[in-house]
Every structure is written in C-alpha cells, then in structure tokens.
Design a protein around this nucleic acid. Structure first.
Lengths: 333, 333
DNA sequence: TTGTAGGCGTTATCAT
DNA sequence: ATGATAACGCCTACAA
C-alpha cells in the first residue's frame, strides 16, 4: 500500500518549495502562472489530495457541528436538507448528530463536537435546554446559531418561525371561520418553547374573537402512534369543535383515530409544519406551513456570515408561517 | 481571549510529562493511579478538551463519511437515524452529505470527504452510480459499506433489503389474494437497481400464479406531487386492478389523486418502505416494510467491524422485507 | 512508571 | 515570486 502523497511530494515533483505549492492550493500569495501550472500538473500526476485535517491544525477548520433532536422527523429532515446543502455549497461539511431530544445526549454530543474542533455550531436545542446550554456554548466561544427552537436568555442569533403567529393563525381560523367554541391544543413537549408560544397565539386569537371558548391543553409525543392514542381518548371523552396539533404527524394519527371511532369529519383538525404528505392525506390536512428547508438555508447562511466575520451583529430572523387551509377543517361536520 | 489549553499545559500543571498525560487520556501505557488522578484533576481545573484533529494526524481519525441521495426523504431519514446513533455510540461522528441523487454532486462530495480524512464510508449511491464510483473508492482505499442501494460489480459489503422479495410479496398479494389481472408498477428512477430487482420479483410472482396478467411499468419522481400527477393520468387512461408504488410517498399521492377523480377504492394500492404515516392514512396504506432504522444500524455496525479489523471478510446482509396488509388493498372495490 | 524526541501535513512569518 | 523554518497539538517508539 503506497504511502500517502503529501504536499512536499508535490513540491519536490514540481521543483518548488512547500510554500509555493501551498500557495497554489489556497490561492493566497502571488505565484507566477508558469509555476502554478507546473504544480497543478504535479498534483494531477501524483494524485495528491488535500489534507483538511492537517491544515486545520494551523488555520480554522471547515467543519460545522449540526445538532438536531431527531434526524428522522420529517420536519427536521427538511431543515437539515437546507442546512447541509448550504454548508457544502460553501465548502464546509456538516457534522450531524441527533440528541433524541435528551439533554444528557446533547451535552455528550456537544463535547464530541468540541473535540472535533468544529468551526461553528447550528443547533436545534433539545426540549428543556436552559441557560446551562448557552453558557456552555459561550465559554467555548464558537460561532453559534439557534435554529427552530430558541433558549430563553440566549443572545446568539436565532432563526425560526413566528410560533405565536402560527398558533394565532390556527386558532383564529377555527374561531372565526368555523365558530368553534371548544378547542384542544394537542401534542408537543409540555415545556417546549414552541408549544408555549403557539398557545400564546391561540389565547390571543380567542381573546380577540370576544366569544367564550373552552381551550383544553394536551401533551403527547410527536409520533403517529401517540396521535392515534390521543385521538381515541378524545373520541371517548367528547370531541372539541377543533383540534390544533403540534405537528402534522400527530394530526394524521388523530384523524385516523377519529375515523376509526366513527367520528370522521366530526371536528376540525389543523396540523403544523405542512410536511409533504399533508396535502395527500384524505381528508387533506389543514396545516401551518413553516418551510423547514428555507429555515435551514437561512440559518446556515447566517452562520456562514458570522464565521467570515462579515456581519457585525447578526440579528435573529423570524419567518412568517402561513395557514394552508384544506379539507381537514372544512365544514363537513 | 485565552489561548487554547493543550495537553502540555495539563502535563505541566500536573507535574508530569506529555507522555504520561497522553497515556491517561488514551488509556494506553501504564500509569499509577496517583498520577492518573492528578492529571484528571488538572484536566478539570484547566478545562482541557481533547483535540481530535491534532490526534488524527498521528492515528486514524474518528469521523465517518455518510453519503445519502436525499436527506429529507422519510425513508432515508430513518436509515440515517440508525446510522448516526450507532456511530456516535461508538465515539465516531458522522459527516453527512446529500447528493440530491446526482452523480456530479456525489463525486464532488466524495472528494470533500476524502480531504477530510474520513476513516470510513457508508454510502447510499446515487441513481446511476456505476463502476466509476467503485473504482474511485477502491483507489482511495477506505473501508466502505454500500447501503440500501448497491452498485453492480461492487464487492464491498452491502447492507440492504431483498428487493426481489419485496416486489414478489406485493405482486403475489395482488394476484393471489385479489385476483388482479392488470398491475402497474409506478415510480422510482428508471435505472435504479432497486426498481429493476422489484420488477424481477413482480414477474416471478406473476409467472408462479400461472394466470395471464398485464403488467405496466411507469416511472416517476419520488414526491407526493409526482404521485398525484401519475394518479390522475392513471385515472384518465383506465385503472389497473392493482398498483405497486415505488415508495409510500408516491403511493399516498396516487391514492389522493384517485380519490379526487372519483375512483376511491377502485383499485388496490401498495406502497413501499412503510414509513410512519402509512398506517395513519385513510385508507391506511398497505406497504412493503423495510425497517430503515434497523438497516442503518446494521450497516453502521458492519462498517465499525471492518474498521476495527475484527471481521476478516464482512459478508453482505439482505434483510427480508415484510408485506403489511392494510386497507388500501382491501376488497372494497 | 515516566521522560525525550521525532514526526504527522499544513500554514504563516520572515527573509531573499 | 519564492524559499527556509517554526509552529499547530498530539502520539509513540525508545530510553531511563
């Protein structure tokens, strides 16, 4: 097995010094076109490949840590696709890890990322993340952007969507267009900031409506199965006029359970995120669209800006969600 | 901004040599418990963090490249979650990239991964990958496992599911349980190996059945929208007795289109992969289950085995898919 | 059990 | 425009 070919080999082969060879690689320093071409040729024939690891010992590295609660949840998948493509397009690579939404995992992975010298960090914090996370990141002193979920008291840039507005849009629609008098908010981790914000929006919509609305607040896991279970419980204990689900996956489960319980179309169901299959479901799912992919791209760009030091102080960015009205809250009651 | 604290600092602070300090980190070499504790303490108080990058210059690195066609497709998301958790559990980190199923992207990303000195490679090759990919990887000489899709002529370990069997199960069900006389296979890239294998299975089932069956073979993108379009076309040109879709996403789109065209329940629909929402759809979707997460875990474990050199020759592994029969091919025609 | 010293492949500083 | 040389932080014979 042949020894790795190094920059020194290239330099020797081209009859120049390491420095010059390095210059043609990085583009820095001025090199005559003649030598440049000679070096390029040597690189070709020798089959040299750049050693990013070694280079990182001197200059800043080109890998970025990406922390996500669940890599297999459709919405996060969309976000990740945006993040990843933006990074690799700029020559960076994403070191992706999934915390399974657990704080201990998050801490462990954070440490690993640190040992890997990532140049920056994009993180969708695990539910329950508090100032410990923030101060841990601060002491580390690496460019960071929070994504999709924020941490109270954090001052680092945050890219997400306006959860309050999202909750408002959903509730407003139920109350105004459908005159709902009882609404259930279902799903999400009890302590999640997104959940709390959306409920704030819901309350606001209810208050504005002026009418008396009974709001019930239920928690569940973000899985189809949990949605189905919750749906059956709701069917048993009396259906509200409308249900706002924490995400589409849960909403689909609920719809299924109500169908099985003989309550198809008996109430309005609104999902969240507008994942790809929401439009295909029967009935098609009304949902608050957040465009995860764009979110990921925006966050990644912001982070790249911080890294290159271009931006003096990157402000946070809140995207406006949009209510996509479909059949699941039509008036077929 | 304080200078990075290095192992030398730790050694100095603990009053030992670099070697000793390094030994307590790696566990190699014998160190007295007394000194070990002293060093540990110094590490704590100084806030030392291991520099994986620097270490990789001497020993083998601990990052693994993971190449995937589309990070945002539910099935791949499941696979990735298995891959990632297995790697990080073993102290490795996954450098994930998405090729968008394009060969040029794949080549580019492969090069980047190489520059990043990944210790191994797990790859779901882009559609159309041929021996060029294989030989490129071979010349590079890095432990590799192919995942979910294989490349003809590749001898490296492959972890996937038995596509032929999957196609067989679906077709056999349609022909035997539902006496279908016309079947359409819909979706997937025309050249995809999975597609070809599944069709082989379909043909086998038809042959075994002994009856005359008209098989139509249609291609489409793996999106809900494409499924909807295809569904409308099918509705216009006459429905077959049964439709086998290349994946659940397409299947859901087709079901929706048929519903809209007034053909709800007019034919049997079978999906592939059994993603989470398949069971929730109305009607619930019959699907060939492949357990992506397990696939990812298996592949990652295999790769880790190869890395540690334990396994002399890791054989490939084909998981048996399973047909989950649900309402979408019930007898409500 | 602990210390010495050389090397991993690159970048950056300072001459020339 | 190009070259010599010192880092960067760690690992690992080899010596003590």
């Amino acid at each position: 097995m042949a020894r790795r070919v190094t920059l020194i080999d290239v330099a020797r082969h081209a009859g120049v010094s390491r420095t010059t060879a390095s210059y043609v690689l990085t583009g820095a320093g001025r090199v005559s076109t003649a030598t440049r071409e000679r070096v390029q040729a040597s690189i070709e024939t020798l089959g040299y490949v750049y050693n990013e690891g070694a280079a990182s010992l001197r200059r800043k590295g080109r890998t970025i840590g990406v922390i996500v609660p669940n890599i297999d949840r459709p919405f996060f998948g969309e976000v990740l696709s945006g993040v990843e493509s933006t990074f690799t397009a700029s020559g960076y690579m994403a070191l992706m890890v999934s915390t399974r939404d657990r704080l201990d995992q998050q801490a462990r992975l954070l440490r690993m990322l640190r040992e890997h010298q990532v140049a920056a960090l994009a993180i969708i914090p695990a539910t329950g993340s508090n100032h410990d996370l923030v101060s841990s990141i601060r002491s580390w002193d690496v460019p960071t952007v929070f994504l999709s979920r924020y941490v109270l008291g954090a001052t680092e840039p945050y890219v997400g969507s306006d959860e309050v507005l999202g909750g408002y849009l959903a509730a407003d629609h139920l109350v105004r267009a459908h005159r709902c008098r009882s609404i259930t908010y279902l799903g999400g981790p009890k302590l999640g900031v997104a959940r709390i914000d959306r409920l704030t929006g819901v309350h606001r919509a209810l208050a504005e409506s002026g009418s008396e609305v009974n709001l019930v607040d239920l928690t569940c896991e973000s899985t189809v199965e949990a949605g189905i279970r919750a749906g059956h419980e709701l069917a048993g204990s009396g259906l509200p006029d409308g249900i706002i689900c924490h995400n589409d996956t849960v909403a689909l489960g609920v719809a299924r359970a109500l169908f099985d319980a003989g309550h198809a179309g008996a109430t309005r169901i609104i999902g969240y995120d507008d994942i790809a299959t929401a439009q295909a479901s029967i009935p098609s799912l009304t949902s608050v669209a957040t465009n995860g992919r764009l979110l990921g791209e925006t966050a990644a760009s912001a982070l790249l800006a911080v890294i290159s030091g271009a931006e003096p102080a990157v402000r946070s960015h809140l995207a406006e969600p949009q209510l996509i009205v479909r059949e699941s809250c039509g008036d077929h009651a």
